[in-house]
Write a protein that binds this DNA or RNA. Structure first.
Lengths: 156, 156
DNA sequence: TATTGTTATACTCTATAACTATA
DNA sequence: TATAGTTATAGAGTATAACAATA
């Protein structure tokens, strides 16, 4: 019966998430971008950065696990700031391709360097073995949790 | 240089958090409570459940990492639903003590049983060794990350 | 007719400011 | 005068519905 330990794990995960998502670290990371970017805007940039190329509005929404209109709005704002540009998808003229600009790339690079710097500093005292073991087990946990989620996503 | 692996870890953590916080698992867990509880209301109940006794509004807010008025509102709603009751703190009559009722306790029990059941099912195929190792490393990671956060919380 | 995206609208989550009561 | 909490208000995050353009 792992319930007690699992509950503890979950509670600490939630607390850490709250601290990271609205705390001083987040503010420091946003400040590093040089602009007052909203969280969803940062997520749009992060998705494009990870994708390594232009993506459709719908693809970005799926990756962010939000609905389309939410992405539309933030892409608009990012466009006004010069951080992304959009072009009609030549393969399907209903769709738009969103592409990160050098300004946007610099912003997300700076944001990530603060957050990842924080994470790596925390892992600084860890042995190579423990670090590898952590990444391995965490990766496996995520895979198993995601698979388990399917139970609820498709109830039949 | 662990940055690449750290980035991967962080991205997957974020994706999993989104899935758990607004996905089908969350809806199933809320449905199990038998009431249409908002997420902050569930968090209030979870804090009281973990505390094992009455807590002040301010204490609940600190635990939830939110401001006081947010808690006040949801305590009101929970009171109307009969899930908590409040009494003036006899030691300091400015403060109110919030106490979970049997109805509220049942609701949070049912919510947690769904979420923790999901988590435990995912860990079902794991060896005892791997499970222990995961909890150990994750616990250590949280401790180190929290300590590292202090850098940003107190910039001097 | 189905799909991609946008516009309009509304609801939830959370913070800040102004205030009341007690310390 | 400082602290605990509440009330009022506003802003950010997100969803749903109605619509336009293209497939």
């Amino acid at each position: 019966m792992t319930t007690a330990a699992s509950g503890e794990l979950l509670a600490r995960l939630g607390a850490l998430g709250a601290a990271v998502n609205r705390g001083a670290l987040y503010e420091a990371a946003v400040a590093a971008t040089g602009a007052a970017l909203e969280r969803p805007a940062i997520n749009v940039l992060a998705v494009l950065n990870a994708a390594g190329g232009p993506r459709r509005v719908g693809e970005i929404a799926a990756q962010m696990q939000v609905e389309g209109p939410h992405v539309t709005r933030h892409v608009h704002r990012l466009e006004q700031r010069g951080m992304v540009r959009t072009v009609v998808d030549p393969d399907d003229r209903r769709a738009r391709l969103v592409e990160i600009t050098p300004v946007g790339q610099q912003a997300i690079d700076r944001y990530l360097s603060v957050v990842l710097g924080w994470l790596d500093s925390a892992l600084d005292g860890w042995s190579e073995h423990d670090r590898t073991e952590l990444f391995h087990l965490a990766g496996r946990l995520f895979d198993d949790l995601t698979a388990q989620l399917a139970r609820y996503e498709q109830p039949d």
